[in-house]
Structure formats: C-alpha cells, structure tokens
Computed example of a mutant assay.
Amino acid sequence: MILVVGGAGYIGSHLVKELAEQNEVVVLDNLSTGHEYLIDQRVHFVQGDLGDRETLNQLFSNYPIKAVMHFAANSLVGESVQNPFKYYENNVSNTLTLLNVMLKHGVKKFIFSSTAATYGIPETDTITEETVTNPINPYGHSKLMVEQILEDLHQAYGLNYVVLRYFNAAGAHVSGEIGENHDPETHLIPIVLEQLLGKRESISVFGTDYDTHDGTCIRDYIHVTDLANAHILSLNALLEEKLQKATYNLGNGKGYSVKEIIDTCERVTGIEANVILSDRRPGDPAILVASSEKIYRELGWKTKYTLEDIIESAWKWHKSSMTIV
C-alpha cells in the first residue's frame, strides 16, 4: 500500500487517480486547500494533518504502507514571503514529523514533490539538476531544506528517496473528472480560462519587452498527468531497488511564452481574451525552462501531452467545474 500525503490537492489527486490503477492507496489530507470530491473513490481516505503524530502512527499501524509520496506543502510564493512561519512549520517541521514516524515504522521509501523554486533566479535559461540552488523566497527555502534533510536521513538511517523539481503543473485529467481548483488562483492557464468563462474581467500581461521571441516571459508548463507518471516511475524504481536516491527535473524542455499561452487558449476555446498590458514585475526572469534529460536517460520518462492537450483538458474541466457546488 502507498500513502499519499496531500492526495486531495491538484497534483496529488491526479497522481492518486493514476496510482490507484495498480496499487492500493491511502490518502491523508486535512482539506485545507484540497477537495474531497477530487479523491478517487477506489482509495482509503483519512482526514488529518501532516504534523499530527498520533494520526500518523495510527495510519502506519493500520495499513501495510511500503512507501510515502508527499504533496502536502503550502506552495504560494507571495504568501510565503508574508507568512514565512506557516511555510517553515508545515513544509519543514510537519514533514520532519512524517519522516520520523515513517522511519519508526520501518518505512524507508519516499517520493518528494519539490519545486524549481529551489533554483531561485538562475543565470542560465535552461535549468539542469547541476544548476546551483539559490532560492529567493521562504517557499523555495522550505523545499530545499527538506531536500537537504532527506540526504542526511539517507546517510544516517538508510531512507531512500526521489526528489522531483518542476515549475508549472497545468491541465486536467483527460476524463474531465478532476482538475485545477485553487483559491486564490495564481496560475496563468486557469486565470486565462476563467477570464474566457466570464469569471474575470481581464488578464494582465506583466512585461512585453523581454528578450524573447515575442517580448513576453517564457515558462515551463507540463501536463499534470505527465507529472503523475513521473512520480509513479520514480516510485517503482525505489520499490524495485533500482534507486536509492535521486533528484530529477521535470519539464518540457523548451517552454512557452505568456502570449503563446493566451493565443492557444483563444484558439482552443474560440473566445477572444481581454488582455491588459502591464509593466514588468520585479524579479521576473525572461526565460525559465527545465531540462528533463536526466530522468529520461535514467527512467525513460518523457512528456506525452502538448500545450494544446494541456489547455483542451483544462478547458473541459473548467467548463464542467462551473456546475460543481
């Protein structure tokens, strides 16, 4: 059985939907940002907190857990700057509690959903796993701290782990049953689609004079199901003893500009967006793209879904989610 912490959230719920095809799964989620309706009906669900030692001990006692997958972090960069204590408490301290209970119960396989925010603002456009980590906000710091903790626990206690770093998860499950539902919403694709659905008056583009082919920022977008499959490949590698530890970037390798995202949304939906051109935001690099050559070389993972696939699946979800109460 696999424990998925944060399995009611956006990425976690998509992972669970894929994972449950061939595994027994138990989900732990406090529903602070997740949604119970996103949880696959085939799995066991326990509502509880990542830092609740008693709940964790009961979980590991009641279920034959052989590995843990962690998606339960707080992840809003702006909020982390305004309220760093929340991020260090949940993302670091509560994760330490989880790891401590895991090891006490003899569970030594761990998949960690990390972030490219650990790199900060790199000097190169394409980020590899060898790029220097230099986070610029508490969110990135908190994730990097956990990565460092995992290495120490590997050396001291034999904890085997995979860290997966990525930028922008996007899209929805092809079934249309689950998708992205954040409050507040900070991601570009759902913001554009919400405007096209009439939920927003306009879309702001921050900067049109960057050194890119169309003047707008380029970022890495990856379909959430591609992300889920990378996590499952990594899990299987741990379970089959093919890996003891690894860190992988997950990306599409080329990136898409803000204008390309908006244009593709308009093309897929047939609706024209109301775009407002604004000044640059401080600290926004022109290009941030992740190289996934390492995980392709070592585990055979590569992206399956195109930008059009991402937006078509997201549009299907956003239209159907308007009826969800």
Rank of each mutant, 00 (worst) to 15 (best):
N23R: 09
E266Q: 14
T133A: 09
L277A: 00
S202T: 09
E89I: 15
L31R: 02
V162H: 04
V68F: 07
S75I: 11
F112M: 04
Q58G: 14
S278N: 15
L150Y: 08
K302L: 14
Y63S: 02
S75H: 15
K245T: 12
I189R: 03
I111D: 04
A290Q: 10
Y221N: 05
L193M: 12
G9Y: 02
T95K: 12
H44N: 13
G270S: 07
A172K: 03
E272I: 14
E308Y: 14
M145N: 12
A156C: 06
A72F: 06
P282D: 05
S13F: 03
L239E: 07
R53F: 00
E24A: 12
E272C: 12
T131Q: 06
V81M: 11
Q195C: 07
E147G: 08
E36C: 04
Q22E: 12
S175M: 09
S291I: 04
L144W: 10
G171M: 13
V163S: 09
I295V: 14
K104I: 11
L277N: 10
K66Y: 06
I295R: 10
I127N: 06
G176M: 12
T269S: 10
A246W: 14
Y119I: 08
E308P: 07
T133M: 02
L15N: 08
V46R: 07
L159A: 14
I111T: 02
L15Y: 15
L235R: 14
V163F: 05
G171D: 08
D309K: 08
